[in-house]
Amino acid sequence: MNVFRLTGDLSHLAAIIILLLKIWKSRSCAGISGKSQILFALVFTTRYLDLLTSFISLYNTSMKIIYVGCAYATVYLIYAKFRATYDGNHDTFRVEFLVVPVGGLAFLVNHDFSPLEILWTFSIYLESVAILPQLFMISKTGEAETITTHYLFCLGVYRALYLFNWIWRFYFEGFFDMIAIVAGVVQTILYCDFFYLYITKVLKGKKLSLPA
């Protein structure tokens, strides 16, 4: 455990909690892509099947359970409890265009052709693009609530911090995982445009709105 890894995890946790609280407090999931949240629930489910096969630490187990639990709670709030506020008309990204190629790639490029390993690889690839329906929704409506941008910022920073964690692990532990690194770079790049808008607009007190 290094400082990048820990702050990355905490940033990820903050993102998840911010989104849950935003929906819960406002009793509304307007502006949130339910599709992205379903993809994240799928990501955590397929990645953390190792909860059943290996124990690493109390920290590891608790965080995995919290991530999975919060992911399903978020999906429940969007599609059940606050369904009336869900903005389905703007959440029109075709997720099959992500899930199918990512599934195929996980079968072709993996460390070991075993069910758990393929599912882990699938989750890594899928996570890297799971935010696309959300970004697509924002580009369609042309704006995002400030609290939603805080969520996205924390979520993007998390994977960027993991990149530093992997650099650290490579230098000090001689460890690197090419699948995670390439997917993590792709994931971080997808946020760059958003990071720019966040820093130039939201941090200066302006609402994030895109030019028409």
Partner: peptide, 10 residues
């Protein structure tokens, strides 16, 4: 799938 380092990451 037995890489402990990888299972350690979230």
């Amino acid at each position: 799938s037995g890489d402990p380092v990888r299972h350690d990451e979230l």
